[in-house]
Write a protein that binds this DNA or RNA. Structure first.
Lengths: 139, 139
DNA sequence: GTAACTGCAAAATATTTGCATCCTT
DNA sequence: AAGGATGCAAATATTTTGCAGTTAC
């Protein structure tokens, strides 16, 4: 059922194209976050590198996906939940990065605690990334 | 006083060279974290791009600096505290990224809360990055 | 039909590698 | 003197930009 992808695209006022459907579909199918490289590999020769860059950028702007901070080079993207408006992300949930299989999970049910900052600092957004071993890779 | 840099290098079994002294000194002088670009700009023509790459890599391996996760492209590096052994970082403190001036602070006194993970997940490291406005940029 | 999206080419950037030379110990 | 560190050149990889052709609405 690729209808979900189409609905999402329409909801965000984007025209429905093959590229966008395929990429969005890929996000819907993968539990976790994806890097640009993941997508490029998955799509094979089907799409141009450049189109993927532009599509991801568009998705982020429209609030369909968001970036997840990581200490390594790779920028990871994950689907936003419904309450992400365009250009205004609310991703106050914890991300989990498995060191074993490399999967990034969005732990939607784990909320980010309020952090007490030193005087003069104002928090705007809080990103919390836990890394370790996921339930699949556990020995 | 550049002795501090020298001491640190020796403590980590690295030979003391001009490049390493200068870069480490730069870290010691800046309160926050630095990107590769920051360092390259600061050093000007003094050092080769490649040398900076290699130096940063060495410092990370030896546990002198660590990387800070971020959602944008730029990898940020910051000095480790003393309890970071080589190849085994313990940076369980909060990082703060000012959206205004771009400075990254290590909030050593703010500790990262324990996160309750779903069944089967084991935490190894927790990175918490708060972004907002710092005490200097406050209106 | 029109505006937006895509693919190709190419430019601009960033990162890595090999090797000869120089410096630290 | 020996091993490691640096600088240069060049190979790779990544990201951005311009433009012409194509597609969605």
């Amino acid at each position: 059922m690729q209808e979900a992808a189409i609905i999402t695209l329409k909801k965000h006022e984007l025209s429905v194209t093959d590229t966008r459907k395929k990429i969005l579909q890929f996000f819907l199918e993968s539990a976790g976050a994806l890097t640009h490289a993941d997508i490029e590999q998955q799509m094979g020769e089907a799409f141009d590198r450049v189109t993927i860059y532009r599509t991801l950028q568009t998705f982020v702007e429209k609030g369909i996906i968001h970036t997840i901070p990581s200490a390594d080079n790779a920028i990871r993207y994950a689907l936003c939940k419904d309450n992400c408006a365009a250009g205004h992300h609310h991703d106050d949930h914890v991300h989990f990065l498995c060191n074993d299989c490399g999967t990034t999970y969005c732990l939607d049910h784990v909320s980010v605690p309020k952090i007490k900052l030193p005087k003069g600092f104002t928090a705007n957004q809080t990103d919390l990334v836990v890394s370790g071993v996921c339930h699949k890779c556990e020995a």
